[in-house]
Design a protein around this nucleic acid. Structure first.
Lengths: 343, 343
DNA sequence: CTAACGCGTGGTAACGTTCCCACGAAGGTC
DNA sequence: GACCTTCGTGGGAACGTTACCACGCGTTAG
């Protein structure tokens, strides 16, 4: 038989005080005699007392739990975000309820309801549904993450700084002698496509490169999408070395496959720069040079912002975390060689 | 101002019944007039009532939450396990508190305590600490996952069926004309090494291959460990095609790198079979043929077993989930060619 | 015809905490 | 010396739910 767990009353009795006093001692309040506090603490340890968070949550309205709703924990980027959030939450002695929405608005809503029933103190969500604009109707403090968060005004959000990322990539490309990369971007419908493209164009102008000169290919944000786009690219008449900046690592890897398929070599004939920083990029041949999104930092920062939100000092701002370059082997160095026509 | 959430009393008043009756209707109990039930349900919907799980948990002793403690959500295998658990839990309308132990016994224990404080109904753990044998002292229903679970007797556990996996791999190797693969296994201290080796030997005997004939190389369970082991292997005098069965995908990929480093080709000169089924295996060149552990199934099944455990019908058995072969391109087909000396 | 029973319902006591108010003692002020 | 404040403590209500028992009614068995 499993014996009853000790409550604060057991502690109080053993310490010879009232449960109010015991509670104060356990909560670390100030107006209490040091000697009493120590007696209570000793008693708590002696009986093996452990605070019942359910009861605390019920009485105080603070459950000590946060919700995290992301599309798919199996996706390396989201796993990284989760890890960041998990670590930061554990640091603050707060638990995380994790759910995966699978990009399904129905699941998302049902998970959000589950979070509310569980009385979490707040939630971090990568919103998939547009209909989430009745977000405040949920009565929960929210922090949004990911690029889709920008659809929602008046809600705090954390994402990656794609402007900085694109500049980083473009500058690196220049340092290797590639001045006007070809772009492989996502489908027209996607918001992320526009943002990526805009960032590239803005920075190109800054560097006196005519954005109109840039070649752009479309594709789904997948391996196959990247492969097809690259194949189309290789069918164009071309001169010399090709440099590709893909909007996503999967597409970049697909492009790499297409290059091999055509009997060409990366990076000798084609240079490829990715964007995401997925771990698989380390295992391709050649290793994929890419710009890594700071998933972990985003997760940690989201928890941080959520604390602010809960504490009632909402800044309702967007936070953009900086990306970093992972330099592997998919870029040729043309800077020392006689300059080819188009970088 | 955020308005007060409706309680069951609000529902009862609106429906004109006592809160006991309202509670019964909401809980879907049987001894209640259909008409009353409907009136209550309508009232609940009208006021937007949502059950407070904290209060339920406190009164009934069931929090409706489960704990999951895995080493690292960022590791694709564990992410897969988490996903399986997440899905199965969501199906049963139960929430999952996720923690990452980072292979650190101290963290593990602190997370386990956090779970107990949160009053989860049970926990799924990949045990890292040996000192966890006072597991029942935790007073929680447990289900262990992963290979390290076997250290604990009398506790339910779910893992992958490595015997079946090895047979699968060996049979596939034979079908491709490789009869006695070289083994790249983990360090001597590891339990998993022994289990892998034993499984290979047992099945070899069954197929009339002398296990003593098998070449074995050691290494850390990492990319570098696999690379080093392969390099050593290539330094041995050899005749013809080499076939390697690595105990882990990372090692397999490392081995692949070593092969390329030495100017050899996979699969023409060296065939490589991995074990794990990590997603990155799809992006190596050539694609890694491997045996995939059923992470997702393990996670789902663990939740299932945990339900049994909580419900008080503990089977305390070990469950081994079958693995499956992912056939990509890292194996040469020698079955049609004149047979070389050693497969 | 009465006792026993089942059914639907209501009332109330828990569950383990925190919050609020009140109380007595000690110390300081006029 | 009477008053006010401060400090440490205790007592009880409250949080929202479920568990338990009791009640009234209609039905059925003896």
């Amino acid at each position: 038989m499993r014996k009853r767990r000790p409550t604060i009353i057991d502690v109080a009795e053993r310490a010879g005080v009232s449960k109010s006093t015991a509670a104060r001692a356990l909560a670390g309040a100030e107006s209490i005699l040091d000697e009493t506090r120590e007696r209570v603490l000793a008693a708590a340890k002696a009986v093996g007392y452990e605070r019942n968070h359910l009861a605390v949550g019920m009485r105080s309205g603070r459950s000590g739990m946060l919700g995290l709703v992301i599309p798919d924990i199996t996706n390396p980027f989201w796993a990284d975000v989760a890890r960041g959030a998990l670590d930061r939450a554990a640091e603050a002695d707060v638990s995380l309820l994790v759910f995966s929405s699978d990009w399904d608005p129905a699941k998302e809503e049902s998970h959000l309801r589950a979070l509310r029933r569980a009385r979490v103190d707040g939630a971090i969500v990568n919103p998939v549904s547009d209909a989430l604009d009745d977000l405040d109707k949920f009565g929960l403090p929210f922090v949004l993450i990911g690029s889709s968060a920008e659809r929602f005004a008046d809600v705090s959000s954390v994402g990656s700084d794609i402007t900085q990322a694109v500049e980083l990539g473009l500058d690196h490309l220049v340092s290797k002698g590639h001045h006007a990369p070809t772009l492989i971007v996502g489908p027209k419908s996607r918001l992320a496509r526009t943002r990526f493209l805009n960032a590239v164009q803005r920075h190109s102008i800054k560097r006196d490169v005519d954005p109109a000169q840039l070649i752009v290919e479309d594709g789904e944000y997948t391996l196959e999408g990247g492969r097809l786009a690259m194949l189309r690219l290789l069918d164009r008449p071309r001169l010399g070395h090709i440099c590709v900046f893909a909007a996503n690592d999967m597409m970049a890897i697909g492009a790499m496959m297409a290059v091999r398929e055509r009997g060409l070599r990366c990076p000798e004939d084609v240079s490829i720069l990715g964007f995401d920083g997925i771990p698989s990029g380390a295992f391709t041949f050649p290793g994929l040079t890419t710009i890594a999104k700071p998933g972990r930092d985003i997760g940690a920062r989201a928890v941080e912002s959520l604390f602010d939100e809960i504490e009632g000092r909402p800044e309702h701002g967007r936070v953009y975390m900086p990306c970093r370059l992972i330099d592997r082997a998919s870029l040729a160095d043309l800077s020392r060689e006689p300059r080819k026509l188009v970088g």
